[in-house]
Design a protein around this nucleic acid. Structure first.
Length: 505
RNA sequence: GCCGCUAUCGUCUAGGGGUUAGGACGGGUGGUUCUCAGCCACCAAACCGGGGUUCGAAUCCCCGUAGCGGUACCA
């Protein structure tokens, strides 16, 4: 019982209450989505509550707009919260900037008990202390010089118009931090400095508000990114000084970019924005499945998890300790998997907004079954929903270019080859014009009959026709395309191709 | 600089004192097909290094090294 465990274990005695506490200073990013998901799954698994708290004590950077963007992104992912955000709950408002009075009470208590003090140092002075401390290889960058200011000095500072901050007085005894994922350790208090808990403008800081709200909101488990690991002992110290309950901690490893750095808005822009993936046609299920496997695994067999399965199987014990690289290829694979899982009707529903966005479709859908035919023809070729646009635009418009490489390969770049292509297209055109019923079986039989009897390679005939009808050398089965396009359009496009082929090669 | 965390194929990971170190993504090869995608089959690809402990270490211990995170009146 005296050995340090590699990990702490998840203890569940009270009803589980977890929270996601974003600061509304931008969109929800991948790392935030994963934190939200882990918290949400943990809550669902234990039948607990998932709380959304808005940590907006940095008034200069927080915006309402970003707060609403975070709501939207979370809702899109299906990570609904039980309390907080725009929803409220038994703890009143869950927006920290509106909870100032609560923190003020605790700060007064800290000041009174001598666990906190006013600091009159200016930013310039602090900067100087910092550089000096660094030069001297000091453990901390603030030396606690305002801990015992005489009343004369304080009066002078006040007279100068200095506005003080409030600092917490760090304890002298080691602080024990238990982490479900990373294990336990004792923090040497000499490495902890007297953190600013209230700014000179009166607004409290993260380390104070976070631990107070965690206690007040009866949060049982704090699941957050490891970038907060170094804040943990500070927050525990504040909780102890205030006599508040300390939640259990679980620090989840970071999501990294391909060069191993933390994914951040600052360095990766909207590449990390959840909204961007929605706009590009990724499915929430795919995002969730992808993101959960960044750091968590179930066994050596399963990659695909439904949300219900995740709720059942997720636990913190199987979250790894090291960071995980965001691999877009794997996301793409999962996304195509989930798109393919959709039946044609559902897939059509999913894809319609992307056609509309691209201007290929009006808001009023009159040709639903035709659209479904297109989706069925496209089959399992979509990686993202947005792929529907480049892959099917030729169904909606005649205005496409012939891909030069395809033209060169299949139509030929010599007059001789083009003459041959013209002959084939002319013949096929005639076959299609005369065919009694314009359906796949009849057309297929007629075309094969023509190619085989005339010793024409099937590929050559089909690819030649494909370019005429779509402009490209790849895509769905050509017979599907022909039927969906209708006889009139097909004949018209072959005519156009013949004219093109009569021009200069 | 200081504090802290981490370390299995390119990537996500399973495993863990004796295994051909398993799976998935990605990559490659072949098959199917009117193309592409898909599907099927196969292939290449890893235990950071050095010391211990042990009959035996990728696994346990120690020391390195590297990477990352933090180091604000941000969160």
């Amino acid at each position: 019982m005296n050995e340090t465990p590699d990990r702490a274990t998840t203890v569940v005695k009270d009803p589980v209450r977890v929270r996601m506490a974003p600061s509304p200073t931008g969109y929800l990013h991948i790392g935030g989505a994963r934190t939200a998901l882990f918290n949400w799954l943990f809550a669902k698994h234990y039948n607990g509550k998932f709380i959304l708290r808005i940590d907006d004590t940095d008034m200069a950077r927080s915006t309402d707009e970003s707060m609403h963007e975070i709501y939207t992104a979370l809702k899109w992912l299906g990570l609904e919260w039980d309390e907080g955000g725009d929803k409220g709950g038994p703890c009143g408002t869950y927006v920290q900037s509106e909870r100032k009075a609560i923190y003020e009470g605790y700060v007064a208590q800290l000041l009174e008990s001598g666990n906190a003090y006013h600091c009159y140092c200016t930013p310039e002075e602090l900067e100087e202390i910092r550089t000096q401390a660094r030069g001297n290889k000091q453990l901390r960058s603030y030396d606690g010089r305002c801990r015992d200011l005489t009343s004369e000095v304080v009066e002078r500072y006040v007279a100068e118009g200095r506005k003080p901050t409030v600092r917490i007085k760090m304890p002298e005894t080691p602080i024990r931090v238990d982490d479900i994922i990373l294990g336990s350790r004792n923090i040497d208090p000499a490495t902890l400095e007297d953190e600013v808990i209230v700014r000179s403008n009166g607004m409290p800081n993260y380390n104070l508000t976070s631990i107070i709200d965690d206690a007040v909101m009866k949060i049982t488990h704090v699941i957050r990114g490891t970038e907060h690991l170094n804040n943990t002992p500070k927050q525990i110290a504040i909780a102890i000084a205030l006599g508040l309950n300390v939640p259990q901690f679980a620090h989840i490893p970071l999501v990294l970019d391909s060069s191993g750095r933390k994914m951040s808005k600052r360095h990766h822009g909207d590449l990390v924005a959840v909204n961007r993936y929605r706009e590009q046609g990724y499915l929430p299920k795919a995002m969730l499945n992808f993101v959960v496997r960044l750091g968590w695994s179930y066994d050596d067999k399963q990659e695909i998890f439904s949300v219900d399965e995740l709720i059942e199987k997720f636990d913190l014990e199987r979250v790894g300790k090291s960071g995980s690289v965001f691999d877009i290829k794997k996301l793409e694979w999962l996304n195509s998997h989930y798109i393919n899982q959709l039946d044609v009707a559902a897939r059509t529903d999913a894809v319609i907004p992307f056609w509309q966005e691209a201007g290929l479709l009006n808001n009023s859908i009159e040709n639903r079954s035709w659209l479904e035919d297109i989706v069925a023809a496209v089959g399992e070729r979509l990686t993202t929903l947005q792929d529907i646009v480049p892959q099917t635009s030729y169904f909606f418009t005649d205005a496409f270019e012939y891909d030069p490489k395809a033209v060169k390969k299949w139509w030929g770049n010599s007059e001789e080859k083009r003459e041959r292509t013209r002959a084939i297209l002319t013949n096929i055109s005639q076959i299609l014009e005369e065919i009694p019923t314009f359906d796949i079986e009849t057309i297929e039989a007629a075309i094969w009959k023509y190619t085989d009897e005339n010793n024409i390679k099937r590929v050559a005939a089909m690819q030649g026709l494909r370019i005429a009808l779509t402009g490209t050398s790849f895509g769905p089965s050509l017979f599907d395309i022909v039927v969906i396009l209708s006889r009139a359009t097909v004949l018209k496009r072959v005519q156009k191709a013949l004219e093109f082929l009569s021009g200069n090669p």
